[in-house]
Amino acid sequence: MRLLLIRHGQTPSNVKHLLDTAEPGPALTPLGQRQAAALPDALAGEEIGALFASTLLRTQLTAEPLATRTGLEVRVRRGIRELFAGDLEMRGDDRAVETYLTTVFGWAAGDTGRRMPGGENGVEALRRFDAVVDEAAATGARTVAMVSHGAAIRMWAAVRAENVDVEFASTHELLNTGVVILSGAPGEGWRVQEWAGRSVGHEDSAPEASGPAGESVDDIEDDPPTVNA
């Protein structure tokens, strides 16, 4: 199966650098709407047979143009929503972002028992995402698109893809409507084929260290942090 994991378009909380993970969440900014509108052409070469989105409004709005182009129903599933920020919800200060990142990439490194303050642990986060991937595989579609969230996509790919690890996921950007393309199947394993337009293993330049939404780590240190939500 070919699995397209798509980050949603830009939201006001992205602009304000907030950890915004609660349902239903904000809609898209005008830029986010344009990003969503550009997806069908960007993915025109993909024969998408099933389309999923999370329960957060921003992913459903991002999926709408793809649904219109393909004629597919958007299957809304809670399992691929963003990693819950818990007690950090709607914070954008450096301490909150550091705690969120440390927890998320701790899960990606194998410390799945660690719990987000007031939120879920890595076992729970992986279980819910896996369940939707399993459902997608069961559709029989050769290519499935899922509109999800930056931290969730990067964490899941780092854990489940055999050719991507936590170092890769934490240092490669995934901006709004960025796409991670994997091939494989549940129970058989996954490999990342492309990450935000680049073939994995054929990078032509060194990666830039980045935070959960793909912003430069230098920007996190020098400017208000950008977060995934």
Score class of each variant (00 low, 15 high):
141 A>R: 02
37 A>Q: 14
146 M>E: 07
169 A>R: 00
98 E>F: 05
158 A>Y: 02
194 E>N: 04
189 G>W: 03
196 A>N: 07
6 I>R: 03
63 A>G: 06
88 L>G: 07
214 G>K: 02
27 A>V: 08
1 M>A: 12
217 V>M: 03
18 L>S: 01
114 R>F: 07
85 A>F: 14
76 V>S: 09
72 L>Q: 13
161 A>G: 03
2 R>L: 08
177 T>Q: 01
49 G>Y: 06
173 E>Q: 10
163 N>W: 03
18 L>G: 04
167 E>D: 07
207 P>V: 02
184 G>H: 05
191 R>K: 05
216 S>V: 04
181 I>Q: 10
227 V>P: 10
125 A>M: 13
120 E>Q: 12
69 R>W: 15
76 V>C: 10
123 V>G: 03
227 V>L: 15
58 R>L: 01
22 A>V: 08
100 Y>R: 07
62 T>I: 02
58 R>W: 00
100 Y>N: 09
116 M>S: 08
91 R>L: 11
178 G>C: 00
193 Q>H: 12
142 R>S: 14
26 P>T: 06
128 R>N: 12
163 N>Q: 07
24 P>F: 06
44 A>V: 14
12 P>N: 09
4 L>V: 00
192 V>K: 02
171 T>R: 06
92 G>A: 10
197 G>V: 03
127 R>I: 04
213 A>N: 15
98 E>A: 15
75 R>S: 11
125 A>Q: 13
23 E>D: 14
9 G>T: 01
204 D>H: 00
67 A>L: 07
1 M>F: 04
180 V>P: 01
17 H>W: 13
100 Y>S: 06
31 L>K: 12
145 A>G: 12
17 H>D: 14
35 Q>Y: 00
229 A>L: 08
226 T>R: 15
44 A>I: 04
88 L>F: 09
7 R>S: 10
59 T>G: 02
58 R>T: 03
132 V>I: 11
117 P>F: 08
138 A>Q: 14
107 W>G: 05
165 D>K: 02
53 A>V: 10
26 P>G: 09
74 V>P: 11
137 A>W: 14
43 L>E: 06
197 G>C: 03
19 L>G: 06
102 T>W: 11
157 A>G: 01
218 D>Q: 09
83 L>V: 12
29 T>M: 00
9 G>F: 01
139 T>K: 12
32 G>N: 11
32 G>C: 13
64 E>T: 14
58 R>S: 03
47 E>Q: 14
77 R>H: 10
184 G>L: 04
175 L>H: 13
129 F>G: 09
154 R>G: 08
160 R>V: 07
188 E>P: 02
141 A>V: 02
126 L>D: 06
148 S>Y: 05
8 H>F: 07
161 A>H: 04
17 H>R: 15
107 W>V: 05
194 E>Q: 11
134 D>G: 12
161 A>C: 12
177 T>K: 00
185 A>Y: 06
13 S>K: 09
27 A>H: 04
186 P>C: 06
